[in-house]
């Protein structure tokens, strides 16, 4: 089976993220970029499915010209090839515009399954899996904690607030995974060396038939009006427990009328 995994390069979570004051978009130049953590689980799931059912894994990423760490990581883990969409016209794309661009790339590929992480650590909207399913007219199998494939049928556990739903569909489908689904492998030395020779197809917007007016700042249907850094929290009271810490804690809670 042919699996496409979508990966995103994001600013390091541990870094101090901010918005570019001019563009009001995430300032990607200010901090180190790396693969979105959840995407490693998507790659792992794809690799495991291919190990079981045969086939190949293509990794697709979209981002600024130098945002190549994410798909490289996927190749090192074991994906067979990469497609990288990069174009200045895509800068400023909101979730809807991003999903449109990704759908166009997917339109140029053959696949039985699209797998992606259920959340990117930068914007955390969790919108793209549902948007892609809608645009591609494919089953939406999002928040999967378990994936099983039998022939042309796919069954997942979809995590919900109350537990999970068991969901069935026919392939091809869009699956987003949560991080409870597997343990992503570390790239081996052999994998890292092999990745250097794997094909990377770099495309621009026109190359996949994207109308520049439909993406980027121009094509987005939302606009950030202003951004401010939240004021820091006031310094709190810290006490050491000398045997009465629980009672003192309740005193504090009572002073705030929680008790």
């Amino acid at each position: 089976m042919k699996i496409v995994v979508l990966v995103k390069q994001v600013p390091d979570t541990a870094a101090d993220k901010r918005l570019d004051p001019d563009t009001l978009a995430v300032d990607r130049g200010a901090v180190d970029g790396l693969i979105n953590e959840m995407d490693e689980f998507a790659i792992e799931e794809a690799l495991q499915l291919v190990e079981k059912h045969g086939g190949e894994v293509t990794v697709v990423s979209m981002g600024p010209e130098d945002a190549n760490d994410a798909y490289k990581k996927a190749l090192q883990m074991g994906a067979d090839k990469a497609v990288f969409l990069t174009d200045p016209a895509l800068a400023g794309s909101d979730a809807l515009a991003t999903s449109l661009a990704l759908a166009k790339v997917l339109g140029t590929l053959e696949y039985d399954l699209v797998i992606l992480g259920s959340e990117a650590s930068d914007a955390r909207t969790s919108l793209v899996p549902a948007l892609l399913a809608e645009r591609l007219g494919l089953p939406q199998l999002s928040f999967a904690s378990k994936v099983e494939i039998e022939g042309a049928a796919i069954k997942i556990n979809r995590l919900t607030d109350y537990g999970h739903d068991v969901v069935e569909a026919a392939l091809p489908a869009v699956v987003s995974v949560v991080e409870k689904i597997n343990e992503p492998r570390y790239p081996s030395f052999k994998g890292i060396m092999a990745a250097k020779k794997k094909p990377v197809d770099t495309l621009d917007a026109a190359g996949v038939g994207i109308d520049a007016a439909e993406v980027g700042w121009a094509g987005s249907r939302t606009k950030v009006l202003d951004a401010t850094v939240a004021p820091p929290r006031a310094k709190g009271t810290i006490v050491s427990d000398e045997g009465n810490g629980g009672v003192e804690l309740v005193e504090f809670l009572a002073s705030k009328k929680f008790v």
Partner: peptide
């Protein structure tokens, strides 16, 4: 706003 440095198994049950 308020923190207790201590063993949670002493502080929380109390």
């Amino acid at each position: 706003d308020y923190g207790v440095v201590g063993d949670l198994f002493a502080v929380v049950p109390q």
